[in-house]
């Protein structure tokens, strides 16, 4: 029983990170129906930004408390990552907005691989650790061990998701985003600045991925390949939940977190994880292509 609770906690922790990244996929898809295959690598870049900023801040450290360094690093990482995403949108995707959709998807794939190989070439393939912002404190409660880091990850993710949900549902920016997503030809006629809203969406998605990146880096090592490894899983999360649907991305993230943690429990080896996750994706796409929470799109004749 305690083992189970322990695993659930691990799954929640991992699921939170997947959900945060999945949000970026889903928001971009929702607004310009583009599968932004580069998003996983944007996430990867964000962890490196966090690595360099965090190390720099700590080494010059004026003995700031851990929480301040953590927040400073996070803000800087979010900003830098958002900037990267906006630049990618501006220079790689925007010229293709009128082109066939396949062109944009291929471009996204290319941008992702470019980021990955570029990082590989400049920084190298060795895994790295993010600097420690806090001392790790482990609590034990009736046999279940959990750390303060785990709690921070789950809590921060929950807050971010709630915040995003509120932004999309309750603010003017959110309303504009929904308008563009609904009809990008009519929205500008209603005075919605479409280009700016699309940029904001990319920025928002990337900063959330950056938060995910920081949280992830506090527990696991980072390397240039994780854009693929983690990014694909987040992407499956988004599709499983229903791509374009924000709550679906969160749900999908948690489902995939559970798949990853519980596969080795049920099947002989953890190497079956990819197989299970992608088979789940394949089966779902065949029977319910629009995901768990998504809605089918009618084809007009």
């Amino acid at each position: 029983m305690q083992g189970l609770i322990q695993q659930v906690l691990n799954a929640l922790q991992l699921g939170s990170v997947y959900a945060l990244i999945a949000l970026g996929y889903t928001m971009v898809y929702g607004i310009i129906t583009l599968i932004n295959f580069a998003h996983g690598d944007i996430f990867m870049v964000s962890t490196y930004v966090a690595f360099f900023v965090g190390t720099a801040v700590i080494s010059r450290a004026l003995h700031l408390p851990g929480i301040v360094v953590f927040i400073l690093t996070m803000l800087a990482t979010m900003f830098a990552t958002a900037l990267l995403a906006v630049l990618i949108e501006r220079f790689a995707y925007k010229p293709l907005r009128q082109a066939p959709r396949v062109s944009a998807v291929i471009t996204a794939l290319g941008v992702g691989l470019f980021l990955e190989n570029f990082t590989l070439a400049t920084i190298g393939p060795d895994p790295r650790f993010l600097p420690k912002f806090f001392p790790v404190v482990t609590f034990t409660w009736s046999g279940v061990a959990f750390s303060n880091i785990q709690i921070i990850i789950i809590a921060v993710s929950a807050v971010v998701m709630l915040l995003l949900d509120t932004i999309v549902r309750r603010t003017m920016v959110g309303m504009a985003m929904r308008a563009v997503s609904w009809d990008k030809f009519t929205a500008p006629l209603m005075g919605v600045p479409v280009d700016r809203i699309i940029s904001i969406t990319f920025a928002l998605g990337a900063s959330i991925a950056a938060i995910g990146g920081m949280l992830f880096g506090m527990v696991y090592t980072i390397d240039p390949y994780m854009g693929i490894r983690i990014g694909w899983w987040a992407f499956i999360s988004a599709v499983v939940g229903g791509i374009g649907n924000i709550r679906g991305a969160m749900l999908g993230g948690f489902i995939l977190g559970f798949v990853e943690i519980f596969t080795p429990v049920i099947l002989p080896a953890s190497t079956y994880r990819d197989f299970v996750a992608f088979s789940l994706l394949l089966v779902l796409l065949v029977f319910r292509p629009y995901g768990i929470l998504g809605r089918p799109v009618a084809q007009k004749v």
């Binding site: 959709r101 998807v105 599709v239 080896a269 079956y272």
Partner: peptide, 28 residues
């Protein structure tokens, strides 16, 4: 078979999943 019902982006995902599945099966 999935391509009967699924097109465009989603079919791209199906093919991608297929690629990953093959790799994963071979690894196992």
């Amino acid at each position: 078979f999935p391509s009967f019902r699924t097109r465009g982006d989603y079919l791209a995902i199906v093919t991608l999943a297929w690629n990953m599945i093959v790799k994963s099966v071979l690894e196992n």
